[in-house]
Amino acid sequence: MKSIQNNKIFIDSSEYIYRVAHLTLEGTCSLDHGPKNVFIKNLYVDKYPVTNQQFLNFIKSTGYKPADPQRFLAHNPNKIKNNYPVVCVSQHDAMQYAKWVGGRLPTDEEWQYIAAGPNYLEWPWGDIFDPLVCNHDQGALTPVNAHKKGASWCGCEDLSGNTWEWTSGIYDDGEHKFALLRGGSFFYAQDHWHVGGGARKNNYHWKLQILNEGMNRASTLGFRCVYDV
């Protein structure tokens, strides 16, 4: 880690051992869950998830309109405070934003390294779960900077809890397409058949099976960007 500029944090290139807990309720995801060595290139990462204000700026500047607007920004970001994370965006919407700011979505491996770091922490802030340093089961979104004590080793905040975050991959196993989500969210559903909610550990990814864009957007699902150096 070298510096923080404009809420972007520099991450030194590094090799680390990637290992992820596969959790998709029933079924599998046809990916290599490690343990395996992965190489993370030098990059910058957003300190916070992308906010409503940032995303509205993007729309204002580019006139972005998704081809399929179903559920797009259905949380009505104009009425919600600016520094809340943007949600109800698909992976495609997130990618368009990232492109506009000169970045991209993090890969699944990069996200884990940003959260867990070289010491392989279980949670962004350490190895012990602490519901007070993240938005876990608080019933609603919170501002992206509301949990400073929950920052990861490199200074990134709001990684675990508040909103799920898109990663960059879109996978095709021949019969299905899916993407991987990270971090968990504020929403914590009641039953074991529900998507496991609340804040999630650094080594947890969720297999989101892709459908039409209306189904690919959710009121708990946002993103942050990384920037190649």
Binding site: W193, V195, N212, R217, A218, L221
Partner: peptide, 22 residues
Amino acid sequence: WHQYPRLGLDSTNQWDLYKYLP
């Protein structure tokens, strides 16, 4: 079948999830 394994990602209930089909 489109509700499981998707319900619980957010607070959308089993009926509202049909609203997001094409």
